[in-house]
Simulated scan of single mutants.
Amino acid sequence: MTNQQSPPGDTDTGHDPPRRDVDLVTLLERLLAQVPGRTQKDLAAESGISYPTLNAWMNRTRGTSRIDPEKLRSMVEVFRRWGVRTTPREFFEAVGRPVPGPSGDEREARLLKLYRQLPEARQRALLKDAEMMLQVSRIT
């Protein structure tokens, strides 16, 4: 089990400062060691990441700071299916990024409904604002 455990449904979105003592490679090696018989290829296949990409992360020949948040969440879910307790927080901290808030179908549907009601110029402005918010959140 990992040091930071929480129930499987917990997205753990607190505001603790990111830990920099564990990078993604260290985290993945530790979690893979908890599932004998599972390999990097298994993780890549089940999480929808190409094996060459995952292998490049593991060999530290490709950076991890810009990994799509959904790929990080996907790896969390794969490890959970394999019986390993882990959290999105561990993965986001391992790549040096703040943990995004939980996304739920209801919240996303509400946002999409509001977006579709806006005139085109306002839709473009909303997208631009959202992109700026994301950039600022990555800096701070």
Rank of each mutant, 00 (worst) to 15 (best):
M75Y: 06
M75A: 04
M75Q: 08
V76D: 01
V76S: 04
V76E: 03
V76R: 04
V76T: 07
E77D: 15
E77Q: 14
E77T: 09
E77N: 14
V78R: 06
V78M: 00
V78L: 03
V78T: 12
F79A: 02
F79S: 01
F79Q: 03
F79T: 02
R81H: 12
R81I: 05
R81V: 04
R81C: 11
R81A: 12
W82C: 11
W82L: 08
G83E: 09
V84M: 03
V84E: 02
V84R: 11
R85D: 01
R85L: 03
R85K: 06
T86I: 02
T86P: 04
T86N: 03
T87A: 09
T87C: 10
T87G: 03
P88A: 13
P88H: 08
P88Y: 11
P88Q: 12
P88E: 15
P88G: 12
R89S: 08
R89H: 10
E90S: 12
E90W: 09
E90P: 04
E90C: 05
E90Q: 15
F91V: 13
F91S: 07
F92Y: 15
E93M: 12
E93C: 10
A94F: 09
A94L: 07
A94K: 08
A94G: 11
A94S: 14
V95Y: 08
G96L: 05
G96C: 09
R97S: 01
R97V: 00
R97K: 01
P98E: 08
P98Y: 02
P98N: 02
P98L: 02
V99G: 01
V99L: 03
V99Y: 02
P100V: 14
G101E: 14
G101M: 13
G101S: 11
G101C: 11
G101L: 14
G101D: 15
G101R: 05
P102E: 14
P102N: 13
P102V: 15
S103I: 15
S103K: 14
S103Q: 15
S103G: 07
S103C: 13
G104R: 12
G104N: 10
G104V: 06
G104H: 15
D105F: 07
D105E: 12
D105S: 09
D105H: 10
D105W: 08
E106H: 06
E106A: 14
E106K: 01
R107V: 09
E108D: 05
E108W: 01
E108K: 13
E108R: 13
E108M: 05
E108C: 05
